[in-house]
Amino acid sequence: MNIVVCLKQVPGTTEVKIDPQTNTLIREGILNILNPFDAYALEEGVRLKERCGGRVTAISMGPPQAEEMLREAISLGADEAVLLSDKAFAGADTLATSYTLARAIEKLGQTDLIICGRQTFDGDTGQVGPELAEMLGLPFVAYVSKIEDINKGMHLQRMVEEGHEIIELPLPAVITVVKEINVPRLPSLRGLAKAKSAPIPVWTAEELAIDMDKVGLKGSATRVVKVFSPQRVNRGEILQGEPEEQVKNLISKLGDAGIV
């Protein structure tokens, strides 16, 4: 089974703030990490490989420093990794990103399953998985919480609001996984040794023979026009006094509001 796992390098914390003086993102001291949601995708890919044989290829679109994250993916069980990096890819929205990933996956050759995390930690859109499926013309299932059986197709559990659906999915296909699916392992010594020396090819737009109008900002349908800190106005009142008094006061206020 040839498995491709799509990964993204993200800031290690979402606790970013906008400097009120300069109106810019404060990025100091923030380390980049493997998108936590993608760790479940990688782990599931490695587990499937251990179950059915095959190879796991990790791919990521990002700046050159994302190579470090791909090495981590190898230490966690990926057999190989490819970085898609080019100035032309900058500013991509989910449409342009999924297009670029799709071209790279086609270049990789025969692929049976593509696994993505449910969403990224920074952008939070969860759109690249389904858009990628569409770009590749493959069937797609989101929010997979369990892979039950693999024969010709796969039997999966999909998390929906009211419970779980059992779905049969023919391969090749694209899935996104939720954190309930597994507990990602930590690296292995052999993996770390392999990661240190593994070649990580960098594919540029030229190598992908890609339509330049469809990548990066140029290929993006959406554009960010403004970023700002969420406004929060303190409308509240802190109730004073001993607990007994606070509670009494609170209940009378709720009574006034017609709630109790």
Partner: peptide, 11 residues
């Protein structure tokens, strides 16, 4: 099992 998958029993 984690120690095992991390190769620590191999050292």
């Amino acid at each position: 099992r984690q120690l095992a998958s991390s190769d620590l029993f191999r050292i």
